[in-house]
């Protein structure tokens, strides 16, 4: 259930112990499908460089809360120079889906 500000939250426990948490707000697109309007991801994972998380959050608004699209959008952030420790692409996808209002 979204809170008074329209944000819904979810926690997602990664196998192995790390806890990912999300707060997000959605708006329906033309087809009525919920799309991310604002999102904040927190947790006890590691990401190097750390600023990659802010870049990821900035890339999510407008994306529908659907596994295939989320996967496609998130995967590039975990490629290349960025090292994420304690969670992988699929964990972030499942985290966001868990907050679907």
């Amino acid at each position: 259930m979204p809170d008074v500000n329209g944000f819904s939250s979810a926690d997602y426990k990664v196998t192995g112990g790390k806890l990912l948490r999300v707060r997000l707000r959605t708006v329906p697109d033309a087809q009525g499908e919920p799309c991310i309007a604002a999102v904040s991801i927190t947790g006890d994972f590691f990401m190097h460089p750390e600023e990659a998380l802010e870049a990821l959050e900035a890339a999510l608004p407008g994306v529908p809360l659907r596994a295939d699209v989320l996967r496609e959008r998130i995967a590039p952030f975990f490629a290349g120079e960025v090292q994420v420790i304690g969670a992988d692409v699929e964990d972030f996808v499942q985290l966001l889906l868990a907050a679907k209002p």
Partner: peptide, 8 residues
């Protein structure tokens, strides 16, 4: 941690 929410 850097990524944690303080109030959480």
């Amino acid at each position: 941690g850097y990524f944690q929410g303080v109030e959480q």
